[in-house]
Design a protein around this nucleic acid. Structure first.
Lengths: 334, 334
DNA sequence: TATAATCGGTTAATCGATTAACCTCCCACG
DNA sequence: CGTGGGAGGTTAATCGATTAACCGATTATA
């Protein structure tokens, strides 16, 4: 293993000089700098990360992704992660996946307290998340993906819901139902409230029993949709709070002998890759996943370096993607 | 920041004793150990990772995921990553996402040479991968996901292809086509050769023009399928080398006015979550993604610790998932 | 009786890089 | 001529943990 001493010896200077050259500090004449850099490249020298980290920061950020319902295998998460990875790389930071142990909160604190990471991104915060409490208690810099805690990044659910309802209203729909997310997810209330507000601003009544807590998986969406179809009041359009819920809802509609986009209009929220390949292709609100990852790293780095975060949260706009699962409302014979 | 000195002072012993207790070495009487551990917990001491890493290993493994066609946002990759994350956690290792810079090869070497990681998982090796060459040249421990290099983990393409062809033959198909992967992917040849072998062992001829290099995305599958449908010889079943290719192929079949599973049987390779929700649901070979991640970490750790790897590669079996996109062959009027 | 091992620890060297403090030489200025 | 000051470095302390070597007293072994 080649160290700074080897470089110093090779270049005929002291280790201090090498260090100054490497870090662009001190007043080293160009000729000496050239010699040092030459030695660095010929010896293939790479400063030891551990030795650097002993003084100052580790230049590594941690990402906490819970187990259980596996967010890591969720394409939504993967895209956010891609954004974080690129943003971190660009700033010369590394990303560490925080070990997924039995006690995630302890894991987050341990990895930060040990100086392995300078800050933590909380990927999938839930209501009363033990990790968040632990990070706050330990005074560790952190950012949440989702509207929770003090510093967070999220997509604009209110704006998305407004656009969704407007889209359906333009198509002539009045009786619009909602399959809400798992109530355990922090954003759940926001979906429901945004939907209510959007309906009200359009002068529409929320159908009785027209708002159902869905869950997370396709099966949950299927069950919820079946319930919505059984209501007294005929619902002509449904907004699912995620694409995955919409997949299930679509199946339920088909199983009921109805046609998606004609008898019942259906919208998702996500725009996952397969959405365009469903039959019919799914109208959905595309979330700015990649950008959320980028933004999260930005907020976290600001916290780590400046201690006084200029910005505590960021709300990024989603985008309405119109496909064939929503269509003009048609009159039915009663 | 609480250090080992603080713990030593609090427990009334030397720092060496604390270190021995922490690492379970030396012969420290139970009573002293108790005192030390008590101090550790009351002071909330976490050993500095950097200081530990200065001597010995960093206990961190790197994962290199290329940019471009974004594997990180690919659900296939995410599940492998989940397996790696869990396996690493279980062994007390951390996982570092290697910064995605302009020169990935340099990045891999840098992160290992600097001691930030003890070894590297090459996620998406391609033919003549610069990263692989660089890792070999630098003598850095590494494992590839996919059959390339000296140490690797993969799913059993040959077995999968055999089962796929058998399945189709049982349904009465004889003219079976293949939409192969992007030729740039290392496993591409393996798919084609396995398909050939499977056909031969079933006593079948490969239809002329029945093997097409697909690509990676849905659109590639769509184009390839359109070509297959235009062949002189009527092809009644098609194996796509990935689910994503199958999505596109399905669309092409529909666009040609044919019914998937009746006029043309179609198989994928992956079993991504949406496969079950396509219309019709997709018959496919489920890849042992999670287990591949687990296995990769195992092979890499063995390399890092024992220097002489007991095992250099692992081939995991896929599983045939039969759904409605494949069906009994029906006779057509010519 | 001489030698060696055990006990419960301690002391101090060490890992590799950073950086404050200092050193020497040389030139300019009063 | 003496002094100040910059240019171009060097020396050595430091970060926090690990670990080989060692301590003196006691007991077991040859």
């Amino acid at each position: 293993m080649v160290t700074i001493k080897d470089v110093a010896a090779h270049a005929g200077v002291s280790t201090a000089t090498v260090s100054y050259v490497l870090n662009g500090q001190g007043s080293i004449p160009a000729e000496t700098q050239r010699r040092v850099w030459e030695s660095v490249t010929t010896l293939q020298y790479h400063p030891r990360h551990a030795a650097r980290a002993m003084r100052g920061r580790s230049h590594t950020l941690g990402v906490s992704i819970a187990r259980g319902y596996d967010r890591l295998a969720d394409p939504t998460a993967a895209e956010v992660l891609a954004g974080m990875a690129d943003a971190a790389s660009q700033r010369g930071l590394s990303l560490l996946l925080i070990p997924r142990t039995d006690d995630p909160a302890a894991g987050c604190v341990q990895v930060a307290r040990s100086g392995q990471v300078d800050g933590v991104v909380l990927f999938d915060p839930e209501h009363a998340d033990a990790r968040l409490d632990a990070l706050v208690a330990a005074g560790i810099a952190h950012v949440c993906i989702g509207q929770v805690g003090a510093v967070w990044v999220t997509h604009d659910v209110a704006l998305g819901m407004t656009q969704a309802v407007q889209h359906l209203v333009h198509l002539g729909h009045r009786a619009i139902g909602l399959i809400a997310p798992d109530p355990e997810l922090v954003s759940s209330d926001w979906y429901v409230e945004s939907y209510m507000a959007a309906m009200e601003s359009q002068g529409l009544m929320v159908p009785e029993g027209g708002v159902l807590a869905g869950g997370r998986r396709e099966a949950d969406g299927e069950a919820a949709m079946a319930e919505l179809l059984a209501l007294d009041e005929r619902i002509t359009a449904v907004i699912a709070a995620s694409d995955e819920l919409a997949y299930g809802a679509m199946r339920a509609i088909r199983d009921a002998g109805l046609v998606v986009g004609r008898d019942v209009s259906l919208m998702g929220f996500d725009d996952l890759p397969p959405a365009a390949y469903l039959q019919p292709p799914l109208t959905t609100m595309r979330q700015p996943r990649y950008d959320m990852g980028v933004a999260a790293i930005g907020l976290l780095e600001a916290q780590v370096t400046h201690a006084t975060p200029a910005q505590t949260h960021l709300v990024l706009a989603p985008k309405l993607i119109i496909r064939a699962s929503t269509g003009q409302m048609v009159m039915h014979d009663s």
